[in-house]
Simulated assay, not measured.
Amino acid sequence: MAIRPAEQLIHKAAWLYYAHGLRQDEVANQLNISRASVAMYLRKARETGIVNISTSTQLFTDDVMARRLEDALKLDAVWIAPENAYLADPSTDIAVLAASVFLELVGKGDRIGVAWGRTIYTIADIMSYADLQDVTVVQLCGNLGAPYSYRPDQCTMEIARRLNAKGLNFYAPLVLSTEELAHGLRAEPVIRDQLAGISDCDLALYSIGAVDADSHLVKCGALTAAEMAALRREGAAGVIAGQIIDARGELLDCSYNRRVISAGLASLRVIGKRLMVVQEDSKFEPLLAAIAGGLCTHLVVGAHMAQRLLDHAGTSAEKAS
């Protein structure tokens, strides 16, 4: 049910006070209302049961820009985090919102596929604890040996821990040294069955990576900066679950992809809810590629990225007409 205009200030006040820990006077300044009004709104929020992050995300679901973006990009649902001047890092708002959206999308008995990266681990790290029944969290791609907290296995197990769920890791590296080794490993019954089971997931959680020197694949040693630059010249547009895609959202024909142990794009596309979260504005082109490839049904972005996507959709429509 849509939030009525009269209720929006209640939701905003509750969001700022409970999700971000602002004092009542800070909430009043942010919303340009009196402190007495803030106290009244918070009391109403408690009385009506909306003082939890999960429910308050409905405020963003009902945002007009989100609805327009859903129509323009043919997505099932879009959530837009506002640009708040009081936050030193605006991407924090996106992660907080995404954690709440994720919990809303998870159902009892669900099987959830999880990728990796800073965005995913940040979501896991700030996610509220939930005790869901018979939920399984599976790793979407092989692992990396680099000592980062946002490795694939770390992301999977942290989300499983927050949900009190069963976690299933991939006991294989993300990328092999030769195509022959990768082909042989994919044929091993344990790995083969794990890859085949990805399509049985009800929900996928991932972000989209860039194809530049700052890419996780470069920082974690899977590719050198020079190799990544060469792949970009060949048409690389983004990275999803450790795999490189082109601007159409298709797997790039390259040796690197043939050496990767990861869920196939076809398996990802049949997952009913594919939640993509993008924090950085620099990932505009990779995000366009993921959307073009049908790798996203549900999207969480910031207001600036949302406007860029709308502008791009409008320009594309004009060119097509």
Rank of each mutant, 00 (worst) to 15 (best):
L231N: 06
G167V: 06
L203I: 12
D63F: 06
A39S: 15
G238W: 00
T156P: 01
P286H: 04
N164R: 14
L105N: 09
S262E: 03
A187D: 14
V175H: 05
A85P: 05
T92R: 14
S149Q: 14
E180T: 13
L181I: 12
H304M: 09
V260Y: 00
A187H: 13
L22T: 10
P5M: 08
A313V: 03
A196K: 15
K319G: 01
A290I: 04
R161I: 01
A165S: 09
F170N: 03
D202P: 02
C141F: 05
Q133Y: 12
V301A: 08
R46A: 15
V51T: 10
Y206E: 01
V96H: 04
M305N: 05
V135M: 07
V260W: 05
Q307E: 13
I261G: 00
D25I: 12
C296A: 14
A196M: 11
Q194R: 15
A187I: 01
G293F: 03
M1V: 09
A77S: 15
R192L: 08
I123L: 11
E188C: 11
E234C: 04
W15L: 13
I291S: 06
D281I: 09
R232H: 10
A236S: 01
R308C: 08
S177K: 15
V135D: 04
I244E: 06
P173S: 08
T55N: 09
A290R: 04
V278G: 04
G209R: 06
P189Y: 01
N84G: 00
Y17T: 07
A77D: 07
E227F: 04
I191K: 01
A19R: 10
L168W: 11
R46H: 13
F60S: 02
G117R: 04
T48V: 13
E26C: 11
L9S: 12
L105C: 07
H298T: 09
Q154N: 14
